[in-house]
Amino acid sequence: MKKLLNYKLMLVLIGLTFFVSCQHETEEALEDAATNIERVDVKWLAPDDHPVVQLLYSRGYKKGTIYETEEYFLAPPDLFYSKDIKDYDLTDTGADPKQAYNTGALVSLDRMRINVFLDASIGTDLQTQSVNAMNELNGINNCALFFVRVFNANQAQITIRSDFGVEGTNVLGRAGFPSNGRPFNLVTLNVDRIDDFGADIRRNVIIHELGHCVGLRHTNWQANGESGAVNIPGTSAFDSGSIMWSTANGGTPFTNGDLTAFRALFPRALRRDVVNVIDEYDYSGEIYVVDEVFVDVFTDGSYTTSATLNRNVQVNYKKRVQEYNHTSGTYTYYRNRLLSAGSSRYYLDEEEEQCSPYQGETCTYEDVDITYAFSIL
């Protein structure tokens, strides 16, 4: 999403606010990236008849304000949107991660460790400010988000790179919203413009864009012509000092409302744990295995300190049943479980494996996958 520029520059969190943060320093030291990438991007006005553009118009954007590049649609003030209309459909009946493209889409609580790759195209100063931004976010206590710099692009959930000349002077950065419980995978920075501002503004712009990647909205979304958003109790739509305001500001990045939002949306990190409870084999070829699936609670995505769940959390998951040999087929069941605050470990479901030499040597496997886990405000 784009970051608009204002000489007061204030970044704020969505009036309905969504945030990212955490309480640990980035784990790897700053290093220069390998080689500079030469690339030039261009944008053009998006066609009104494209189904995604029509959807964006129906969500409140004005006609003539949507542009596109080879990869994405660009919406004011600083948002990326997928060009594939299928990305906006709710296909999983038991999970919400694809819910409205700009309302309520968050990173799942079992994906709180987020690897970030800093492309050489942003230069060493913006690499430094990106690390500072991650440290600020990791420094928010009682927040599960945990950003880690990685030096291999293939390991990253988010890449921060140059916009390669596509943005005008009024846009400092751009990012998008999560989908399928995963963070948006790209932040672009207007390297030709952002260097005109102080170090704290450069850092805050990056924090703002990372906030979008995990699901935070603009506080002043209505004035920007964006569609509705979900309010977080204890936050205000008029918090003009928030990190998610659509214009940037220097100084201390977070208001009290920002901290409230981060802690409410990302209270704890969850991690799946599988425990074997039955393991039976015999010489005839019979196999029967039962595993119990649990989720353990941690303070954040570093997964180093266990904790008690401090808010109710809903876990949506799917159970896939696969049958092989003469009855081969796959079936999926969508389920959910409410984890009530107060414990550090929760039973989710069981997985099963059966193979028999009888009845055509049929084998059945069951797998449990978490699709989305979110705080109940």
Rank of each mutant, 00 (worst) to 15 (best):
N36C: 11
N36S: 15
N36E: 15
I37K: 14
E38K: 12
R39A: 03
V40A: 10
D41T: 07
D41L: 14
D41I: 10
K43R: 12
W44E: 15
W44H: 13
L45C: 03
L45W: 08
L45D: 12
A46N: 07
P47V: 12
P47W: 02
D48C: 04
H50N: 13
V52N: 07
V52F: 06
V53N: 07
V53D: 00
Q54F: 01
L55R: 12
L56F: 08
L56N: 01
L56G: 02
L56D: 03
Y57P: 00
Y57G: 00
Y57A: 03
S58W: 04
S58G: 05
S58T: 03
R59M: 11
R59F: 10
G60H: 05
Y61I: 03
Y61L: 13
K62A: 09
K62Q: 08
K62L: 10
K63Q: 13
K63C: 08
I66E: 05
I66V: 15
I66H: 07
Y67G: 00
E68D: 06
E68Y: 13
T69Y: 05
E70D: 15
E71I: 01
E71L: 02
E71M: 01
E71T: 04
Y72L: 13
Y72W: 15
Y72I: 07
Y72D: 14
F73R: 06
F73L: 09
F73N: 00
L74F: 10
A75G: 01
A75F: 01
P76Q: 14
P76Y: 12
D78Q: 08
D78P: 04
L79M: 09
L79N: 10
K83R: 12
K83N: 09
D84V: 03
I85R: 01
K86F: 05
D87Q: 04
D87L: 09
D87T: 10
Y88D: 11
D89A: 15
D89E: 14
L90E: 10
T91W: 15
T91Q: 11
T91D: 11
D92N: 13
D92S: 14
G94Q: 09
G94K: 06
G94C: 01
A95S: 13
A95R: 11
A95V: 06
D96H: 08
D96P: 05
P97A: 15
P97G: 15
K98I: 07
Q99E: 12
A100Q: 10
A100Y: 10
A100T: 12
A100L: 08
N102R: 13
T103C: 13
T103L: 08
G104P: 01
L106A: 11
L106W: 10
V107I: 06
V107F: 02
S108N: 04
S108H: 07
L109W: 12
L109D: 01
L109V: 02
D110K: 07
R111I: 02
R111Q: 14
M112V: 04
M112W: 00
M112Q: 14
I114F: 07
N115L: 02
N115Y: 09
N115F: 05
F117K: 06
F117H: 05
L118S: 06
L118P: 09
S121A: 04
S121Q: 01
S121C: 05
I122F: 04
G123K: 00
G123D: 02
G123I: 06
G123V: 02
T124L: 07
T124P: 05
D125I: 05
T128N: 09
S130Y: 00
A133T: 05
M134D: 02
M134P: 03
N135P: 05
N135W: 00
E136P: 01
